[in-house]
Design a protein around this nucleic acid. Structure first.
Lengths: 154, 154
DNA sequence: AATAGGAATGTTATACTGTAACACGCCCAG
DNA sequence: CTGGGCGTGTTACAGTATAACATTCCTATT
């Protein structure tokens, strides 16, 4: 699977994830309602994290409910079932690029182009006697594409 | 150094960190002004993360400026110089428990007692060609103390 | 000692992020 | 055919954070 920083057929990328999510929902009796599906599609349009209010703006224009809970509830659903993730350092959201494939996602975030790449967390901090339940790993830096541009890394 | 989950002489714990910070500031020509010092002290009072507005409430009562920027600017200073950290998953702040000792802090956060323990991040997600600049690692779970209490881990 | 310039503080105002609580409609299990 | 759960929509509000400007305080020179 190509990651977000690599050139890839994005139309196909979107379609593949959407298909997987639709199938997963059917298999597990989850209701991928119009709002929920649309929010996923909005997230899938780009590999940049989008704020709940950005998403809400789009929803409004399309005739969905106009108040924040509409967006937040759809995002909750998507996150609960692993179809979307929150980028904590940005208070923004991305579609999962590998639904059903892993348990501890980690994110590489380019501070120049804002692209987010999802990867698997390889281990996490621990301490004897501490029971881990959730792991957040986010790395900010410069992605290969922005690095190779003439402007360099500032 | 005892970590936050271990029983320890907290008065001494606070004093030691404060002393180190004071020395570091003197050594590097940093101005640990009254507000900044007081915010650090407030953070040092507990190993639980405190919101900027909690801190601000205390500042107000003590005659410091009453508007959010007062707290946020002091926190910015402390974070910039590694004396405090933001817990991204909680929008809250803690004092650094090992100022000057490491570069990539990671945090273990007990969801029951809200205690935060700082540790060193052992490695972080990467991808070929991506230049890492900042790493955020936060683990939520149950700390040893809460685990051993009769109520168990729910 | 006088003073110019930057740093720090304080204020107002506003932007951004997120949730509580309740009304309504839909659907399907009894 | 109904009642209860779920999903949607709304209003209202709570919580987090910053922009912009005025003022004061240092301090590094004259």
């Amino acid at each position: 699977m190509a990651h977000s920083f690599e050139p890839h057929d994005h139309t196909n990328c979107q379609a593949a994830v959407l298909r997987t999510v639709v199938e997963t929902c059917e298999k597990n009796g989850l209701r991928l309602t119009p709002v929920r599906r649309r929010v996923l599609e909005i997230l899938l349009e780009t590999h940049q994290a989008q704020s709940a209010y950005d998403i809400l703006d789009t929803l409004k224009q399309e005739g969905f409910g106009a108040a924040p809970p509409v967006a937040y509830r759809a995002l909750d659903f998507l996150q609960t079932h692993g179809f979307a993730h929150k980028i904590e350092t940005r208070n923004a959201y991305v579609a999962c690029t590998a639904p059903g494939e892993h348990h501890d996602p980690a994110f590489l975030i380019c501070r120049k182009c804002n692209t987010v790449a999802e990867t698997e967390a390889a281990g996490h901090p621990a301490m004897p006697g501490f029971v881990t339940e959730q792991v957040v790993q986010e790395v900010e830096g410069i992605c290969p594409n922005c690095l190779s541009e003439t402007s360099q890394y500032l």
